[in-house]
Amino acid sequence: MRALVAVKRVIDYAIKVRVKPDKTGVIKENVQHSMNPFDEIALEEAVRLKEKQIIKEVVAVSLGPSKSQETLRTALAKGADRAIHVEVEEVMAEKIEPLLIAKILRRIAEAEKPDLIFLGKQAIDDDCGQTAQLLAGLLNWPQAMYASAVEQESDKTFIVTREVDGGRESVRIKIPAIISADLRLNEPRYATLPNIMKAKNKLLEKRKPADYGIEIVQQIQILEVTEPPKRKSGGFVEDVPSLIVKLKEMGVV
């Protein structure tokens, strides 16, 4: 079996994001970037299935500027066997939407013929949570979203436990299939130093969207990006009765 894992380079989750003065987006220059946390979990699951010898090869894919190669090298250090970088100029990278990513991944899937495609459930920068579903639609493959457990049932089927509003749901999917990783699926390993060194010898192919016959077309135009409204500062109360009195005055209680 072969697994494809899509990874995205995003602003590190520990960074406090700032909006550009011209309101066209957020500041990205000289800001720490890392692999999207949900994609790390997706990659970890693919590597674990490989360690169980259910999957034979793990291919990592990333779409973005040249710096996305750093993210792919991290993926290679964690256990991916080879990587594909679909390079887009910095300016065009701002215009990429989940549908475009899904279209490119579809072409890569047709070329690589994976049995499973793993994605994170959402990217922490745009918070879309759409790419995996769109990809399943384009390929007409079954999807198991928000996975918190993945188990092989037979040569052709997996049982995936999903995180849903009321609890958990188990589904059976037939390969080839798409799985998106939720937080509880696993805890990703570190890229160890010896593996970082070994990863330098692994194959990292460079492609362009045009190689797949894909043109970057925007369907959505971002009009403005602003900061959330500032909250008025609160006050302190000395004890619980004062708190109750205040809440009553405001009509909350």
Partner: peptide, 16 residues
């Protein structure tokens, strides 16, 4: 170098 950046990031993550 790319390798140095990668190990710096790995160390940062481990330490954090």
């Amino acid at each position: 170098t790319d390798g140095q950046q990668q190990l710096q990031e790995a160390a940062r993550k481990f330490v954090a």
